[in-house]
Design a protein around this nucleic acid. Sequence first.
DNA 1: CTGAAAGCGCTTACAG
DNA 2: CTGAAAGCGCTTACAG
Lengths: 350, 350
Amino acid sequence: MAGQRRSPTQVDVARRAGVSQATVSLVISGGALGNQVAESTRQAVLQAAAELGYTVNAVARSLKGGRNRMLGLYTFEPVFPVDQRDFYFPFLLGVEEATAAYGYDLLLFSSAGSGGDRRIYAGGVNRLKVADGCVLLGRHLHRDDLAELAKEDFPFVFVGRREVPGVELSYVAADYVGATSEMVAHLARLGHRRLAYLKVTDDREWTRDREAGFRQGLVAAGIPDDQVRVFAMDERAALSAVRLQDWLAAGITAVLVEPTDDDSAIVALENAAAEAGVRIPDDVSVAVLGDPPLSEATARDWTRFTLPREQMGREAVRILLELLNDNVSARQLYLDCTQVAGDSVTELPE
Amino acid sequence: MAGQRRSPTQVDVARRAGVSQATVSLVISGGALGNQVAESTRQAVLQAAAELGYTVNAVARSLKGGRNRMLGLYTFEPVFPVDQRDFYFPFLLGVEEATAAYGYDLLLFSSAGSGGDRRIYAGGVNRLKVADGCVLLGRHLHRDDLAELAKEDFPFVFVGRREVPGVELSYVAADYVGATSEMVAHLARLGHRRLAYLKVTDDREWTRDREAGFRQGLVAAGIPDDQVRVFAMDERAALSAVRLQDWLAAGITAVLVEPTDDDSAIVALENAAAEAGVRIPDDVSVAVLGDPPLSEATARDWTRFTLPREQMGREAVRILLELLNDNVSARQLYLDCTQVAGDSVTELPE
DNA sequence: CTGAAAGCGCTTACAG
DNA sequence: CTGAAAGCGCTTACAG
């Protein structure tokens, strides 16, 4: 078994077909140039290649700058570990589906390591280049990795809006601004005109976008700033029952919660409510600005919006191929979220 | 945009550090050889590399090494379409996990087409060879593709037992023989000594293995052949209510069902039982020989055994790397299934 | 301890 | 229409 026989190269094929290696290259992967080859020569080469079981070496081709019909998927967090699966899997599905539809293969850069902190340039090596281009995914990215990638002019598209100073990135993002603004409108229509906004302090694109949408929604609904409370939560400042009661005393009737990558913000709110003896939605309405994975405890039909995750994956691939084939510059795409009515928001009596 | 500036190479670093390119290679990735370099030289190189933002080009490195550090995953059926996800996803998880653990990347051959009938040798070329080796998956394989692959000496491992005449394949399989035999023993312990065996006619490895396990279990339990009914189901011969009643009249107390890739066999049995007014498990016990995806209708806690799917995926990768690195010949591995008590089998009163 | 050189398998101008 | 040649960025004997 296992002759460990090195696989045939174009030189081998050339020898067998009685032509030069360059000619073999031309017929195997010449594209337009391949048409210059005489039909008889082409047949001889193809036959020799088939007889030897020749396949082109993707690495050599990449090195030279050729294409491999391979798209990469790089994630800054491991996609497969149990707690992240539900969140990331739909993106993966979308990416895989579109990749297949366009006739490409999908390279999962799992070698980056299963540890939490993944780097594109781990050990000073950029693996990504074996692929023709790459879809990037994950919240805990490294901006300098992205800057470096962009500097190298390697085609990539991020799933989710990402800003890197001085670099114009391509991405496919959920329209958090619109979805949040729409949520405010929804609440306003139900009579809620005094709102609290519970956010995480982490100053990230999605945090800023939602807050911008919130402000925009306030303006559209004609709700003045003094009717609003904004509270930023972090490790040191959790939401207390006292604060929640303060809000209610001040006339707040609805809370908008920005979820992080888990349901901790929601849990915090529920705990505060339980402690304060406040019922949802009877005493206060709650709208969740997204659809994070929920643990057993928080599993209820929250009023929320969902991200078009599979579609985001698909569109990222589509844009990546545009970057690749049409030589266009960076592109940004926003996709609509879907509002889900849920049962954590109720109409306010006049 | 697009500085089009190519990223720095070892030549650039060498120039800046005033040494040769070979020396740069030695300190960047020399391994043991790297220790020969004088400390001052090494520092100069490292500094120059840092200043230029040099990163090793993994593609060039692989070319020289002959390996890609890429493992492939090829599936004869699409893995991602909705109806197959639950069944195939755990295999994928296992494969991905192990691939990552060993520091390889995983290439999903999605380009094969999303159609049902996938071929390895599409267009006469074996695309799989872009990877160092490949894990294969799927029930509806093409034996000649496998034979051809083996002939090419390309390293691959099948998930599931597969036989191809004249070829010794590597695979990681569930031990259907043991699991089925154990199920018979379980039934016998509960007093069932007259059994019916409902199988699909399709003459495949897993069908034969389960039947072998059944026979083996009968012998071990001392159940003679004349206490047993075997019925092979196909499109033309479904299980009828009449036949089921015949069985009960003949004293049969338990039925073993071989599921196909869906729950159709189970559905057939349930329908026959419903029509005949036979209750499960009160009137007849039912054991399912596997854990197929169940539709809503059949979702109950069947007495069954489950395949160690993730583990199968992991082990397939491990064996593939043995094939790759240790130059060993074909290997077969059987993994234990897990018996699940369920509620579709009941003890027989003395 | 360091450098010159060959070569991994390909693509792509450039001659003929 | 085809071939000779350069070069992609690296690693690794081999000299010195």
